[in-house]
Amino acid sequence: MRITCPFCGERELGEFTYLGDAKPQRPAADAGEDAVYDYVYLRDNIAGLMSEHWYHGGGCRAWLKVTRNTLTHEISAVEPAAGAGAAKVGA
């Protein structure tokens, strides 16, 4: 598998580390235990397009949001995480 890092270009899988579903958002400090429980433990078992967090540890150390089809492994989009620095580079 190959992932096109927005900072480094197309690189092979071995440079990246997988984390998981990028959809769950960390709840606000006052959201309560149930919301945090859901965030920590509950995951959809997605067959199809999934937005995922990948870490380019073997490259620029950016966290990426990768849209991957879990049925085919086809990657349709890669974007940097909000704090990965893209906005500041462009600014």
Binding site: T17, L19, R26, H53, Y55, G57, R61, A62, W63, P80, A81, A82, G83, A84, G85
Partner: peptide, 19 residues
């Protein structure tokens, strides 16, 4: 050492990009 760096980068880039 490596895992904490990865974790902190996750916190910085994904969880707390406003900082």
């Amino acid at each position: 050492a490596g895992l904490v760096m990865q974790h902190l980068e996750f916190c910085r880039q994904v969880l707390f990009p406003d900082l």
